[in-house]
Design a protein around this nucleic acid. Structure first.
Lengths: 204, 204
DNA sequence: TCTCTAACAGAATAATACTCTGTTTAGTGT
DNA sequence: ACACTAAACAGAGTATTATTCTGTTAGAGA
């Protein structure tokens, strides 16, 4: 990881400067007042752009949402890879999933907050197919990585469909609670406990 | 549980007929096209009401959302009580939490779908304080019930803040996946497995 | 029957999303 | 350096949607 922000990595170049600025301010608006309540004009005002510029780059409000959401997915995916590629055993693999997720959320709280908010909208909106395809691809990628891992000596009785939920369900839930302020302690403080709990939950 | 629908129980009486109808059609609209994309007029058209009636009962779109959301919370709470009051041991208590949650979702998929969608909006919108207060009250209620349970002979090492996530995180995640169509198998089929997994995840 | 309040209707208005036409600006080739 | 082109940008104008406002109707109680 270098020092560039997520946006600078995904939308590089000098000409995309305003585009990045729009996305950044849109993200802030969405997180501060909610997706439905933020108006195009409130975004426009914050980045001192024109509506023309916004619609030129993103087409409509859904377009802004989609650009932000898929930026999140891209960055998460890249981040997770680093952790997963080091895992040799099944337990290490599960642990890497949990810990990489927690680390990403703690390092990018604003983006994570947005992701939780926007998921439902994107899952309905015009990008739903793109999202479904991405999810499928990501699951397939996980399966492949899992195939390259040493699974001798361990027995998982839970059906495959249930595995993702058992592995990241608790962590996701806690991260959401933390981002919304319902709990105070950083998920980082519970990284290992969450990973261990996920592993125990798999033992049938 | 009787045969009355959730709405008939929460908004009883003949005079509230249109009010119930508005809520029912609003729920359908929100689930079919998403909260942001459903217009007041699309709701109005489906229940053959007037905008006047809608605004008389709910004030604004947030009002409809809030009425539906707190109806969900009320119904869930009542439903959970029945399960929890029977639990005598800690393990039974954890199991009751998981199983009551799964059962409720499977019995009320449309309401559950809505709850997932609306949570973020309500958590920002004008009812956020009412929601926060409710969450706090519910947590307090859980603690009290927990106090009445036999905890001798079991050792939970996880910090209290983490418990809710460890207990229902996986189930919630799987239910969400099921409601969105990402997985096919009904959560009901995994009730016991989810409860057992939650219990194992607590053992430190 | 009368009264009073909540329920309801729908035209009018306000707020917001989006379009369209033109202007500027950054690359690109000569 | 200069012209050319496509993308970036501006903002007035239009369309859509949320909300208000002024009434009318219907039902419960005196």
């Amino acid at each position: 990881m270098n020092e560039l922000s997520i946006l600078e990595r995904r939308f590089p170049g000098r000409r995309a400067g305003l585009k990045r600025e729009i996305l950044e301010q849109a993200l802030a608006c969405f997180n501060e007042t909610g997706i439905e309540a933020t108006t195009i004009d409130s975004i426009r005002a914050r980045c001192e752009a024109s509506v023309g510029a916004i619609y030129h780059h993103f087409g409509n409000k859904e377009g802004i949402l989609g650009a932000l959401f898929f930026t999140v997915l891209d960055d998460q995916h890249e981040f997770f890879e680093h952790y997963l590629d080091k895992a040799r055993s099944l337990e290490a693999f599960v642990s890497a999933l949990v810990i990489s997720y927690v680390d990403w959320v703690v390092q990018n709280p604003e983006w994570a907050r947005f992701q939780f908010q926007a998921r439902a909208s994107v899952a309905k909106g015009p990008h739903r197919h793109a999202l479904a395809e991405r999810n499928a691809r990501q699951l397939k990628g996980l399966k492949e990585k899992l195939g390259a891992v040493d699974t001798s000596g361990v027995k998982i009785s839970a059906p495959f469909e249930l595995l993702p939920s058992l592995i990241i369900g608790a962590s996701e839930n806690y991260c959401r609670a933390w981002l919304s302020g319902r709990v105070q302690t950083s998920p980082s403080d519970f990284r290992e406990q969450l990973a261990a709990a996920a592993w125990r939950s798999l033992q049938g």
